[in-house]
């Protein structure tokens, strides 16, 4: 049987790239997350969290055993459809989010040409 180019390639735990539409998709539910040439975070729901919600302080004062919420925030990116936590970033407040994956789509297509869908 002739091999077919897959329509989707999983490039991260919760991210696919649809080679046909050249878009990001949620790997859990297939929800579209925008153009694959852009940052997938632009298609996510974003939340700013105090790190103390995740890393519990043990004592009060300047050194609590937890990150300092004034210096450090947790930025979470969710799939708008299924709510899976796609990415977390620890950033100083106001620091730009990272464009962490900028994949060469043409090379990705060439690489997967002839592979069966995963």
């Amino acid at each position: 049987m002739a091999e077919q180019t897959p329509t989707k390639v999983q490039v991260a735990e919760y991210l696919d790239i649809n080679l046909g539409t050249e878009t990001w998709e949620c790997n859990k539910c297939g929800h579209g997350l925008g153009a694959a040439t852009q940052n997938y975070k632009e298609g996510c729901l974003i939340r700013d969290r105090s790190p103390e919600e995740i890393h519990q302080p043990i004592i009060e004062g300047e050194y609590t055993f937890a990150p300092d919420p004034g210096w450090c925030r947790i930025v979470e990116c969710y799939c708008p459809n299924c709510g899976v936590l796609i990415d977390t970033e620890y950033l100083p407040p106001g620091h730009p989010l990272t464009h962490d994956m900028e994949i060469d789509i043409e090379q990705l297509k060439a690489k997967h040409a002839g592979n069966e869908e995963k």
């Binding site: 620890y90 620091h95 994956m101 060469d104």
Partner: peptide, 10 residues
Amino acid sequence: NDGTYRSTVF
């Protein structure tokens, strides 16, 4: 995969 992969730490 070809591309640019970024990470920032503090």
